[in-house]
Design a protein around this nucleic acid. Structure first.
Length: 560
RNA sequence: UGGGGGAUCGUCUAGCGGUAGGACGCCGGCCUUUGGAGCCGGCUACCUAGGUUCGAUUCCUAGUCCCCCAGCCA
């Protein structure tokens, strides 16, 4: 289905009306001050999606790098990486606001010459006082009346590095009495004697977002500048900048509601704090909703895209339930991930009537939902491991799996009966099951029609490959707004985000499982081979949370 | 108490004057060579009050509630 929303309607109407000569040019404009997260994915899918849907449409990737103190090339690389991973491409249209610094400066000079901008020498605190409040109008700065010549001279010297940080700013001359605070002579340039990761020390004045962004859009010929709701009342300023500088092109700013996910830590600031304080292993920690984290967790780009498409685009504030995200990844993985047998908590089983040295290759279906995935062969022998959960010495009413005297089917193999239980003489713990199998019941054999109540998975003890399993839960939090400012917000994070780290035994075919490969372990869930496993051996990360784990976490949060 | 936005199932989201639809979730049933899979069924919504109209979620008026804005961040 083709996505439809109010923004796409605007774009379609503009195209139909021949606006911008029918061209559609969008842009994804991250500041390289952190890694992308699922919230950015919504914006990426929107901007690149609209470009893709419209013939000749294109989406630029622009780094909004106008603040030298927070930005880093590491983030530039990571962002490009993530956009590509999500399945989008800017087709060579990669730009940096910092590449426009010279042009932006020229536009500022135009503004000064027109008497539309002036150099103010108030301190930051004074400027705040002069700005007024939400209900009271602001007052003109005493420096507002400076002559064009003086303004130009001062601005030129600001650029030349003659003044320390904070000595002057360039402000737009709009209206200190405007009910819209953004129009009360906003700052266009500030002095920052800081090295920029791209322009080095070439500049010591840097343009502000409200100035650089509309002009960058105009310079690039962006037709639809899509941003989030908080910029709604910046739109008059956006339009003012484009109009007053006489920029050659008039982009249209359109706002939509950003994505919020229940219990998720989504703000860049907080994610950065988690990384800096080493509360998580890094930006790619599977517990945080960064693109890299989700990727490492085993989420697929297709699933994330499907999710973004499904949640839609609107102007009302919304909080999407994390379960919806997980639904989409499950949905996707069900179709594509091979089913494999893996035992997380092994219980040894000896099939007493099975020959000591025999090995059979059992044919197993790779994916019941996708016949083209084919089959594989899994070795079967006398000594197996089954899941501890699949055996109960004293089975309750609804338990139909293995118990003393009971029969179950071993998936892809035989019907097996439990004939004895071996216990540790010291502790009484069950260490081994003695069983017998029925040779006439081999899976797929035509004469076999016996029914058993349950089927369980297994691995051959002699062939099983040891692996490690990390059962991650997302790093969830309560409503951060409710946490007192003096309290460390990280205290509200769920302590069970990494539920446990345990060994497991997988069928031998997985020994060569490539990094990032996703599997569905029968009855235990979806797992992904961790990209770091090259160092630590075969490690699987759980992709989706268990429902009961969710319930546990949510309950814990609701009661706390 | 200024300005800018927004209110539709528990959660997202359609609808643009004519039976309120979809998805997640939840509940129930079926399936059984494993399900957290699959199949079937069910659940619950138009912020309020007036008005216009044959007819209003939709148009008008007045309220109510929620979000954003007082960085030399973006």
């Amino acid at each position: 289905t083709v996505p439809s929303d109010f923004i796409r309607d605007i774009v379609a109407a503009d195209r139909a009306a021949g606006k911008h000569n029918g061209r559609v040019v969008t842009r994804f404009p991250p500041e390289p001050n952190g890694y992308l997260h699922i919230g950015h994915a919504k914006s990426i899918c929107l901007n690149f999606g609209i470009a893709k849907e419209n013939p000749g449409g294109i989406c630029h990737l622009r780094f909004d790098d106008t603040n030298p103190t927070t930005e880093d090339p590491e983030y530039v690389e990571a962002i490009q990486d993530d956009v590509h991973w999500l399945g989008f491409d800017w087709q060579g249209k990669k730009f940096f606001a910092s590449d426009y610094f010279e042009q932006l400066y020229s536009f500022a000079v135009v503004l000064i010459q027109k008497g539309k901008a002036y150099v103010d020498s108030l301190t930051a605190e004074q400027m705040r006082e002069y700005r007024g409040t939400l209900t009271e109008p602001g007052r003109n700065s005493p420096f507002r009346a400076r002559s064009i010549e003086e303004n130009f001279d001062l601005f030129r010297r600001m650029r030349a590095g003659e003044f320390p940080d904070g000595a002057h700013v360039l402000r737009a001359k709009i209206d200190m009495g405007s009910p819209n605070i953004n129009l009360r002579d906003p700052v266009l340039y500030r002095i920052r004697h800081a090295a920029h990761y791209r322009t080095g020390t070439e500049w010591c004045i840097y343009p502000a977002y409200d100035y650089a962004h509309p002009l960058s859009d105009a310079i690039e010929g962006i037709t639809h500048s899509i941003c989030t709701l908080e910029f709604e009342d910046h739109r008059p300023l956006y339009d003012w900048v484009v109009a007053e500088t006489g920029a050659p092109h008039r982009p249209q700013q359109i706002e939509f509601a950003r994505l919020n996910l229940t219990f998720a830590v989504m703000s860049k600031r907080k994610l950065l704090e988690l990384v800096d304080r080493k509360l998580v292993a890094g930006w790619d920690d599977p517990r945080i909703p960064t693109i890299k984290g989700l990727r490492r967790r085993g989420y697929t780009a297709e699933a994330i895209r499907a999710f973004c498409e499904h949640i839609g685009v609107a102007k009302r504030d919304a909080v999407v339930e994390m379960q919806l995200l997980e639904y989409f990844i499950r949905e996707d993985l069900n179709k594509r991930s091979p089913r494999v047998m893996a035992v997380l908590n092994p219980l040894k089983v000896v099939i007493e009537n099975y020959p000591e040295d025999a090995i059979e290759e059992m044919e197993a279906v790779n994916n019941p939902e996708d016949p083209s995935a084919g089959t594989r062969r899994v070795p079967f022998s006398r000594v197996l491991y089954i899941e501890q959960d699949d055996f109960r010495e004293d089975p309750p009413k609804q338990f139909f799996r293995l118990a003393p005297g009971r029969e179950v089917r071993l998936r892809y193999a035989y019907i097996m009966k439990c004939t004895g239980v071996v216990k540790d003489p010291e502790t009484g713990a069950i260490t081994e099951l003695r069983c017998t199998y029925d040779p006439d019941t081999k899976s797929g054999s035509s004469q076999e029609q016996r029914k058993v109540k349950a089927t369980i998975h297994w691995v051959s003890a002699a062939h099983a490959v040891p692996a490690e399993v990390r059962l991650y839960n997302p790093l969830l939090t309560t409503d951060l707004a409710k946490i007192p400012p003096d309290q460390d917000w990280t205290q509200s994070l769920n302590p069970q985000s990494l539920e446990r780290l345990t060994g497991c035994l997988v069928e031998p075919g997985l020994k060569q499982a490539p990094v990032g490969a996703r599997f569905q372990f029968e009855r235990t869930g979806y797992f992904c081979v961790d990209p770091d496993s090259s160092q630590t051996g075969l490690v699987f990360n759980r992709t989706v949370s268990l429902k009961d784990a969710w319930a546990k976490i949510e309950k814990a949060h609701k009661t706390s």
